[in-house]
Amino acid sequence: MNSKSLYQEVILDHNKKPRNYGALDHASHYAVGHNPLCGDHLDIALNLEGEHIASIAFQGESCAICKASASMMTTVVKGKTRADAETLIKEFRDMATGTLNLDAEHHLGRLTVFAGVRDLPTRVKCAILPWHTLHAALNSVTTTSTEAEDDPMHAAIGDA
């Protein structure tokens, strides 16, 4: 895979001008996600009104892939129900790890710009971290990690 093709215009744009970036006052749900392998972290705050995500914001320190993934994620899940968000989280993870059949029916839409990350094993976690953190926030887990036991991407990749 040509890695430049991963860094498509839309990803570069979201990296440069991240949407929904910053803090959120009076968030009902909140989580911090860490990728201990590279030191990246981001936090996600959201307000659930009933079952709907009324507002959502993120901030943190991360690479372009992670930041663009977070930015696009917030624009896509805003206004969706918790259940719809969980579906997207699962589909996004499956896409990033190469287990999703993109030709079959799915709900990812333009998020498929991240499909190429499945060929860059060292960068999969960068793309997944925001989704993992959203999952934690929705389930009232306040800190999570790409190395957490329940992470489908959990794998010992040394960083020595």
Binding site: N2, S3, K4, L6, Y7, L37, C38, G39, D40, S62, C63, A64, I65, L120, R123, C126, D159
Partner: peptide
């Protein structure tokens, strides 16, 4: 971010280390 530098330098055939 260093990871983006590392991935893009790899595109030029250049192997470097990124991270802590």
């Amino acid at each position: 971010h260093p990871h983006d530098i590392g991935t893009l330098l790899n595109q030029e055939g250049v192997a470097v280390r990124t991270g802590h």
